[in-house]
Lab assay of single mutants.
Amino acid sequence: MPVRRGHVAPQNTFLDTIIRKFEGQSRKFIIANARVENCAVIYCNDGFCELCGYSRAEVMQRPCTCDFLHGPRTQRRAAAQIAQALLGAEERKVEIAFYRKDGSCFLCLVDVVPVKNEDGAVIMFILNFEVVMEKDMVGSPAHDTNHRGPPTSWLAPGRAKTFRLKLPALLALTARESSVRSGGAGGAGAPGAVVVDVDLTPAAPSSESLALDEVTAMDNHVAGLGPAEERRALVGPGSPPRSAPGQLPSPRAHSLNPDASGSSCSLARTRSRESCASVRRASSADDIEAMRAGVLPPPPRHASTGAMHPLRSGLLNSTSDSDLVRYRTISKIPQITLNFVDLKGDPFLASPTSDREIIAPKIKERTHNVTEKVTQVLSLGADVLPEYKLQAPRIHRWTILHYSPFKAVWDWLILLLVIYTAVFTPYSAAFLLKETEEGPPATECGYACQPLAVVDLIVDIMFIVDILINFRTTYVNANEEVVSHPGRIAVHYFKGWFLIDMVAAIPFDLLI
C-alpha cells in the first residue's frame, strides 16, 4: 500500500533555474538572501570558489559584500557603492579590487542584480563577478574607477581610450546646418538635424578633445543650467548677453562664444560640459537660429522629431539603469545623424518603425519583477520565466494532490484497515475457520451469522477504491517536481505499489 509523501509542494524551481543557467555559462556568482541580516550568502558556485580561493563552506553565510576579499588596494568608495546597491532595488555595476585567499590582487567587475517577489519586494541578490585585470595590471588604489561605466561593446579594446569628441564640431553647429540641408533625401539625416562627426583615429590627448566618459557625465550638469543662461549661451556672438549692473557675465554663455574659444586653444572642462549641455537642449539648428531671432517656433511634425517616441515608452518600462547606459552608448555611435529632440514631445505622434532597438522591449506582467540581467542570462521568455513566489501546480481535472487534506485522511483510514487485516486475518484463519468446520452448517442466516465476513468484505472494497484513487494521485519525481499527468501517474504506480495493492485487495476469504 503506498505511503508516498512529498510535502515540499507547491515547489518553486526558480532558484534552481537560475543556478542551472548560470552554471551553463561558466559564470562566477553568488546568491544572497536579502531578508536576513547583512544579506548572507546562501549559494556560491564553483567558479566563484576558484576565483577567490575560498571553499564553499568558508563563503556560505558570510555577508555578500565580500568584505573578506578586501585588501589594501580595495577602494572604500567601491565598497560603499556595493553596500548601497544592496540597500536599493536597481541593478548596478561596480569595479573593485579584490584579494584572493593567497593574497593576489585582481580588479573585478561586480554586477549586483536584485530579484523581487510578486509584491515588488527584493528577496534575493545575485552578484556576478568578472575579472577585468590581474594584480600586475591593477593601478594605484588612489585612482577611482567606479565613477565610470563599463566599456562599450562596439569599441575595440585597444581603442576604448582613444575615443574623442571634438569640441569644434559642437561649436560649428550653425555652420554645418547648410551642408545638412543640402544633403536632402540623399543624406542619412532628416531636415533640421545636426550631424556630429566623431574622430576615432588614435591621437595624443589634446586640450581640444573630450573623453567619452566626460560626455556621459554632461547629463548630470544640465539641471544646474538655468533657462535664461541656456538661451544666452545659444544666442551666440551676435547678441551678447546682458548683465545687470554690478553683475558679471555668465561664464556659461561665454563658453560657447566662437570668438572667445578661437582665441585660446584650450577650454576648461567645466565650460566644455556646460556648452555641450546647452546645445543638447535645442532640438535642431533651426531652433538655434530661432533663439537668435527671439522667436522659438513649435517643433515640426516630421520623422526626426518622432524618433524618440518609442524611446520614451522603453525608458518607462525599463527595469534597470543598464538600459540608460545602453541608450547613452548607442546615442554616441560615430558617423550617424543625431536628432536633438526633447523627450517631452507630442504624445499624438505616431511611433516610426526603427531597425535598431535601443531599449529592451516591454516586459510582460509575469516578468515585471525580474531584472534585465536575470532575463538576459536565463534566456527565457515571458511565458517560461515565473515570478519568485509559491505557485500552485497546474493539475488535470479529477486529480488528487498527494499533500491535500483528503489524501491525508484517506491514508490514515487505509492504515487502520491494514492494521485490522494484519490482526484479524490470522485470527480468523486459526480459530474461526476451525469452529466453522466443526459446527453445523448455517446457510440460512447468511452474513448475519458471520459479522467478521462483512467487515472483511468492506475492507476489500476499500482497498479496491484505494487502488483507483492512487491512479489519480500526484507524486514527486526525482527532481522534486509534482507530477499531475494521468499517464505518468499510471506508469509510476504500475512500477511501484500496484502489484502489492492488488494482492492485498483480493478477497481470499470469499474465494475459499
Rank of each mutant, 00 (worst) to 15 (best):
V3Y: 09
R4C: 14
R4A: 13
R5P: 05
V8R: 11
D16A: 15
I19A: 04
I19F: 03
R20A: 11
R20C: 07
K21W: 08
E23P: 01
G24N: 12
G24E: 07
S26H: 15
I30C: 06
I31K: 01
R35I: 08
V36F: 01
E37W: 05
E37S: 09
E37D: 08
N38C: 09
A40T: 10
I42C: 02
C44T: 06
G47D: 05
F48D: 01
G53F: 01
G53Y: 01
R56I: 01
V59E: 01
Q61F: 10
C66F: 07
D67K: 05
D67F: 05
H70P: 01
P72H: 05
T74S: 01
A83Q: 03
Q84D: 13
L86A: 01
L86I: 15
L86N: 01
L87S: 07
A89D: 13
E90K: 08
R92Y: 05
E95N: 08
I96S: 01
I96K: 01
I96C: 06
D102I: 01
D102C: 12
S104Q: 09
F106W: 04
L107R: 14
L109G: 15
V110H: 01
V113D: 11
N117R: 13
E118C: 06
F125E: 01
L127S: 01
L127H: 01
N128A: 15
E130S: 06
E130C: 04
V131F: 06
V132S: 12
E134C: 09
G139I: 06
G139T: 15
S140C: 07
H143P: 14
H143T: 11
N146Y: 15
P150S: 08
P151Y: 13
S153E: 07
L155D: 14
R159G: 10
T162M: 15
T162Q: 08
K166A: 06
P168T: 06
L171D: 13
T174K: 14
R176V: 03
G189R: 14
A190R: 06
V196Q: 01
D197F: 04
D197N: 08
D197H: 01
V198M: 05
T201R: 09
P202R: 09
P205Y: 04
S206K: 14
S209W: 13
L212N: 09
E214T: 15
V215R: 06
T216W: 05
D219W: 06
D219T: 05
V222S: 13
G226R: 07
A228H: 12
G236D: 15
G236Y: 15
S239A: 08
P241R: 11
R242V: 10
P245C: 07
L248T: 09
S255R: 14
S255N: 10
S255D: 05
D259S: 08
A260Q: 11
A260V: 12
S263Q: 13
L267S: 08
T270E: 13
R271C: 13
R271H: 15
R273K: 13
R280F: 15
S283N: 13
D286Q: 14
I288S: 11
E289N: 04
A290Y: 04
R292A: 14
P297K: 03
P299D: 05
P299K: 07
P300R: 08
P300H: 15
S304Q: 15
A307D: 14
M308D: 05
H309K: 05
P310T: 10
L311I: 07
L311D: 14
R312Q: 07
L316H: 14
N317C: 07
D321W: 13
R326M: 07
R326Q: 09
Y327L: 12
R328Q: 11
I330W: 05
S331E: 09
S331C: 13
K332M: 05
I333N: 12
Q335S: 08
I336L: 10
D342F: 01
D346E: 14
P347D: 04
T353F: 08
T353C: 10
P361K: 09
N369I: 11
V370A: 05
T371Q: 07
K373H: 01
K373G: 04
V374Q: 01
L378S: 03
L378H: 01
S379G: 04
A382S: 04
V384N: 11
L385I: 08
L385W: 07
P386D: 05
